[in-house]
Design a protein around this nucleic acid. Structure first.
Length: 509
RNA sequence: CGGGGUGUAGCUCAGCCCGGCUAGAGCACUAGUUUUGGGAACUAGGGGUCGGAGGUUCAAAUCCUCUCACCCCGACCA
């Protein structure tokens, strides 16, 4: 007979191939990462999801500090007039700003109504260039005050029309770096330094292979001179912008008045940068590594690395099994991998073992260890890896399980990166040179309910309004101009005009 | 902002077209019994102002009007 759950071969329904967007929602739910809140477009990040964010924060914060930056904190509310100072910036963000216009509530007929209208409204920060620029303008007097290297961990709000958990929410958590420099060269170097930090974080911690490159003019941050990015490929072969680093030139310093006296005694405008990554990275991790049984977390960002599941066939045996489990947990906690202490949870909840196992599979914990009376007898344990099949068990001695846990976690971390890299490389296409091939490549067979199709196309691009329109009709964008260029002559894949620049084309989140 | 749709138990939904006993199911929850080395079964139980306001009617989850919220498709998306 078998229940629905038993008869379906996977823990998540639908599977990726059946309905990718719905699969994503189900993985987030089953993994207990986050849920939509009563507040439009905002999410509640649940403990397991927040644990992932805390680990990302911990690693990135160290990298940010190791490159000479310090953390600070600026206000959530930005005076409206600040937003008006930089023309391109206003254009980019005006439509998505939440605005605070009152500072008091008054009761009237049992209802609370806003009262005390503000002379000047505030916007809730969509990003903090303008308000941080105001501080910088007072902090900087001389070239001796530069560079100014600041980072803040914060929440921001952008009133998006359509939201998806982690990938695009109205409020999200991020870090935003803001720096000011005496020379253009130094500022540009800073922009690259931080882009490299992001690529390091993505590949070596999140196990996301990324392509580093520059954004084209129409994809640039509003107000920036140049925007650099790291682009990752999800399992539906769409691109996800995983991090950005902007060279802002003197645009914002001019607007905010960040001036300094240089060595020659002349007034000069500082050169500024900004860079950020957000909780969107978690969306990228989910869509890159998860399978049809749910989340798979790279060990370096998993809130817990090992769950020990005690098997208690008879209640009389419970104390002995729990004691055995606790003892193993204690020894595992003394282990570490790549400087990260092994985090262990012993799941003593009074629910069935099968339920527990599947719950942890769906949460993506790297290693499950089962211990029961028979294992106590034989001095062994049963080990399952999340990068193996759900029932692919390995018996090993207690000592071996403990001494090899670090190697296991390191191996899994490398395995996730290798798998993601292989998938991405398989779907980067370099042979497409004509518009006909291009169009076919990006057109799903079923337009009603598009199947997983397409990928990244690495091809020549010459730009132009007509070319952008053709791309827009296909919902394809230029993701980036990769730093790695072939330096060859060719023709633009969209228009056939002569072109030298290689770019990545893809559909994107 | 345009087009479409949905609001009924914690969750997923049936009932509405064609008004009529005490508003239902599955899952989840609680208790008991039997089970237990990979998603248990049975029995009993708790849980609802049917999104809100107004109207029609002897009678409204059901019909009408207004309103609020959410979802999907577009537009928008550093």
């Amino acid at each position: 007979m078998g229940t629905d759950k038993k008869s379906q071969a996977t823990a998540i329904s639908p599977r990726r191939a059946e309905d990718y967007p719905e699969w994503y929602q189900q993985v987030v739910k089953a993994g207990d990462l986050a849920e939509t809140s009563v507040v439009r477009g905002c999410m509640v990040i649940k403990p397991w999801g927040y644990g992932v964010w805390e680990n990302i924060q911990k690693h990135l914060d160290k990298m940010i500090k190791d490159t000479g930056h310090m953390n600070a904190y600026f206000p959530l509310l930005i005076p409206l007039s600040f937003m008006e100072k930089e023309a391109a910036h206003v254009d980019g963000f005006a439509k998505e700003c939440a605005v605070v216009t009152h500072h008091r509530l008054q009761e009237k007929d049992g209802k609370l109504i806003p009262a005390g209208e503000l002379d000047e409204p505030f916007v809730i920060r969509p990003t903090s260039e303008t308000i941080i620029g105001e501080s910088f303008s007072r902090w900087v007097q001389s070239y001796r005050d530069l560079p100014l290297l600041i980072n803040q961990w914060a929440n921001v709000m952008r009133w998006e029309m359509r939201t998806r958990l982690f990938l695009r929410t109205a409020e999200f958590l991020w870090q935003e770096g803001h720096t000011a420099h005496a020379t253009e060269q130094e500022a540009v170097d800073e922009t690259f330094t931080m882009l490299n930090v992001y690529a390091d974080l993505a590949e070596n911690y999140l196990a996301l292979p990324v392509i580093k490159g520059e954004k084209t003019a129409d994809e640039r941050f509003p107000g920036a001179e140049r925007t650099y990015c790291i682009e990752a490929m999800m399992q539906d072969r769409k691109a996800l912008q995983a991090g950005t680093s902007h060279y802002l030139g003197q645009n914002f310093s001019r607007a905010a008045g960040i001036n300094f006296l240089n060595k020659e005694g002349e007034q000069e405008c500082a050169y500024t940068t900004s860079w950020g990554v957000s909780t969107r990275l978690i969306g990228g991790v989910i869509m890159t590594h998860s399978d049809d049984d749910g989340l798979r977390l790279p060990p370096k960002i998993a809130p817990k690395h090992v769950v020990i599941i005690p098997v208690v066939p008879k209640e009389a045996l419970q104390d002995a099994v729990f004691a055995y489990a606790d003892a193993i947990a204690g020894e595992l906690r003394e282990q570490s991998f790549d400087g990260i202490p092994v985090e262990v949870v012993v799941d003593k909840r009074d629910i069935r073992g099968g339920d527990k196992s599947w719950e942890w599979i769906k949460k993506g914990i790297p290693v499950r260890i089962e211990v029961g009376p028979r294992d106590i007898e034989s001095g062994q344990v049963v080990v399952y890896r999340r990068d193996g099949a759900p029932r692919d068990k390995k018996f090993c001695s207690r000592e071996e399980a403990i001494s090899t846990i670090g190697d296991t976690l390191r191996d899994m971390q490398a395995n996730y990166l290798a798998q993601a890299r292989a998938y991405r490389d398989e779907h980067i296409h370099r042979g497409i040179t004509t518009w006909e091939e291009f169009e076919r490549f990006f057109t799903p067979a079923n337009s009603e309910k598009p199947e997983i199709h397409g990928g990244f196309v690495l091809a020549k691009w010459a730009g132009g309004e007509d070319a952008l329109e053709k791309l827009a009709a296909l919902k394809v964008t230029v993701r980036c101009i990769p730093f790695e260029q072939s330096e060859t002559e060719g023709v633009c894949v969209v228009t056939g005009r002569p072109a030298t620049q290689d770019v990545i084309f893809a559909k994107a989140y």
